[in-house]
């Protein structure tokens, strides 16, 4: 597992022998057959757990399904997304997901949260990675410490921070007041001005280690003699960083950013637990879950889910293009 490029393309030297025409015989046919026998169980499970449910979700988004009557869902076309109701007197109103201000609020929250938290995590992750890449006493200890937030379940970190951010007894207010940054306690998770920032703080705390590790893997790929040469030439370390290190690790950073962005766009648990029922932090996933299971608007929730899926699918395609994955197996 020395490979550090994410999603390294499976190439195969192992196939060299098989490609020779002489051996392309009974043996290779037998291997081909067993390949499919090996793959079938996994493919069936994936089809059942991912493929079919996705098709169903998309289907429900075009029906009037409700939680109590999913089986009796009837096709209603695009009505969950877009509907114009004519009131008969020349007046009318648009309904559906595309005209739902709460939905667009959730979209905006998701984009805002993703953009800010991923940006902070990238910068902070880069700083962490640079520190961890330097040689110093106690480095392995620091590396272990950095892994701790990553290992903590999201729900637990949400609760831990909810307690630290408690308006009356929270240690965060105590710290900031001792230092003099704030003069009165702040209700971090309830105040509309700070609720989103509370979520971002917890997310940054939890996922910066992941970012740092991915960037560190990229840093360790940079050959040491590059730095040697720069040192001999007397180039300032800051300049070396901007002109040499950063361009070399850019692919690693880019891939890490896309991975994190995909993750941030579908955020659910952190927001659901840290700031329940708060329109200031409600994201697309939370909006969809609420409609599906709390508001008895199963079809509408399905439409929101489908929308989110399309957004993520587009970013995934972008990722596959950017990372230039070689999926053909060597060619």
């Amino acid at each position: 597992m020395t490979n550090v490029t994410i999603g390294a393309p499976p190439t195969d030297k192992a196939m060299a022998a098989e490609k020779r025409p002489a051996t392309r015989s009974k043996l290779s046919r037998q291997r081909l057959r067993s390949a499919w026998i090996f793959l079938t169980p996994m493919l069936i499970v994936l089809a059942l757990v991912a493929g079919w449910p996705l098709v169903e979700t998309i289907y429900y988004s075009f029906t009037n399904a409700s939680l109590s009557n999913i089986a009796g869902a009837e096709w209603v076309g695009l009505r969950n997304y877009y509907e114009y109701v004519d009131y008969g007197d020349g007046e009318g109103e648009y309904f559906g997901l595309f005209f739902d201000s709460q939905w667009w609020n959730a979209v905006w929250n998701t984009v805002y949260y993703s953009a800010i938290s991923v940006s902070i995590e990238t910068v902070l992750g880069l700083v962490f990675a640079l520190v961890l890449n330097a040689e110093f006493k106690g480095r392995s200890f620091v590396r272990a410490a950095v892994l701790i937030p990553w290992a903590i379940p999201t729900i637990v970190s949400a609760k831990m921070w909810a307690w630290m951010m408690n308006d009356q007894f929270g240690i965060l207010n105590d710290m900031l007041m001792t230092v003099g940054l704030i003069s009165a306690p702040v209700a971090w998770t309830a105040n509309p001005d700070t609720a989103m920032w509370a979520v971002i703080i917890v997310d940054v705390w939890k996922t910066t280690p992941f970012m740092a590790l991915l960037i560190l893997a990229g840093l360790q790929m940079v050959p040491g003699d590059v730095y040697e040469a720069a040192k001999i030439d007397g180039i300032h370390p800051v300049e070396v960083f901007w002109k040499v290190t950063l361009p070399l690790i850019r692919p690693a950073i880019l891939v890490a950013v896309i991975f994190r962005a995909l993750d941030a766009l579908r955020v659910f648990d952190l927001i659901y637990v840290l700031t329940p029922n708060n329109t200031d932090t409600k994201t697309m996933s939370v909006f969809a879950q609420e409609n599906l299971f709390q508001f008895d608007k199963f079809a509408y929730g399905s439409a929101a889910s489908t929308f989110l899926f399309l957004v993520i699918a587009m970013i995934t395609l972008l990722y596959i293009k950017v990372a230039k994955l070689d999926l053909g197996g060597g060619r």
Binding site: L54, M284, F309, I312
Partner: peptide
């Protein structure tokens, strides 16, 4: 990379 919410209803 599937968002879990996309398959939740189905």
């Amino acid at each position: 990379m599937f968002p879990q919410i996309a398959v939740l209803a189905g």
